[in-house]
Design a binder for these strands. Structure first.
Lengths: 191, 191
DNA sequence: ACCTGAACACCGTTCAAGT
DNA sequence: ACCTGAACACCGTTCAAGT
């Protein structure tokens, strides 16, 4: 018996299955960003990925799992860049400001990403990275005494979360002004 | 022809129609808070208000309008208290901190309110009140020079918006710590 | 005026059947 | 393995008909 030279068994060489999965996720990010979570029908997302809704169920067991996978994929896009930004040198507030700026650039490079996160109610990967920076501030001693570390990280995360929400609602110049003021707020130079 | 002594025409004395409207809105706040906006079916909200879904359509033309009216009602509950808190005396940061505390108490008095606002994606009435306080800070001269007034208000609003979002996700003590740190952030005494 | 049961189009999901 | 048309229960909304 002669064995075939390629793909003796299992997935074919091009891993087209994984490509199809990715195509569905990309379509989901775009459609959820454009028409919202409930507006982005399974049939609608499937059509945007050039397939039928029943076929989509071959890749994801239900809409919730598809959304979870899409949220994870969006996280995978954002987290490495934010993490890298957080590791650049400077004071704690410098690094937090750098992260805010990188989050802004990120939403510029991936136009659907911020709108998707907002529509999906995603917990931003920023929280993890902020936690690291504030944790180091605590170790270095630049966090004021008597301040709870997690509380500080949550407060700053609350600020950034509110910012990304407003990014979608404010006109660009107004948002840029807001971003500058948020930086002053972090540095304690607002009032 | 003898005229009836009460309610010659128009709405009966008890304004039962307005009471029914209020009953629907109260049910909507609770059900949206409990099962989310899409989980809170028209049939579900109607049942919670002890009526049929078709009957609910006698009071609201569609689900979007019902949600809009419910959001407005929730605003009506929160705004007066936040406004009163903002008008108490003290420095600008004192008054902003007072508002944060009042927002916390408010969510205690109306347990479904915060969850509803979050689920409905409501724009908090806090933005307006913050705008007033920051505007006065500008006039009094306690806002740093070169800072955009609207930008500062938006940045602080972003902080409070992120805070109310996290109030529903963090355990109570963690949230209290976050709230204290947010106050330090406002006062510039965090780092 | 207010309420209802029954119906409409559409959604998430399933499934038998194709290649 | 991957795809499909047709079907299921359920949702938002409408409507003719009741009181």
């Amino acid at each position: 018996m002669i064995m075939p030279l390629t793909s003796p068994r299992g997935r074919p060489a091009g891993t087209s299955s994984e490509e199809t999965r990715q195509r569905i996720i990309t379509a989901a990010i775009r459609r959820v960003a454009e028409v919202g979570r409930s507006g982005a029908t399974i049939r609608d997302i499937a059509a945007a990925a050039e397939m039928t809704s029943a076929s989509l169920y071959h890749y994801f067991p239900n809409k919730d799992e598809l959304m979870a996978a899409t949220v994870a994929a969006a996280r995978q896009i954002a987290l490495p860049r934010l993490h890298a930004a957080a590791q650049r040198s400077g004071t704690v507030t410098d690094r937090l400001a750098t992260m805010l700026a990188e989050a802004d650039r990120l939403s510029h490079d991936h136009p659907y990403l911020a709108a998707f996160e907002r529509a999906a109610g995603e917990v931003s990967p920023l929280r993890d990275v902020i936690g690291e920076v504030v944790g180091e501030a605590r170790r270095v001693g630049s966090l004021a005494t008597g301040i709870d570390t997690d509380g500080a990280a949550d407060a700053i995360y609350a600020l950034t979360r509110g910012l990304t929400e407003q990014a979608a609602q404010l006109p660009p110049e107004a948002y840029r002004a807001t971003l500058r003021c948020a930086e002053d707020l972090l540095r304690g130079t607002l009032f």
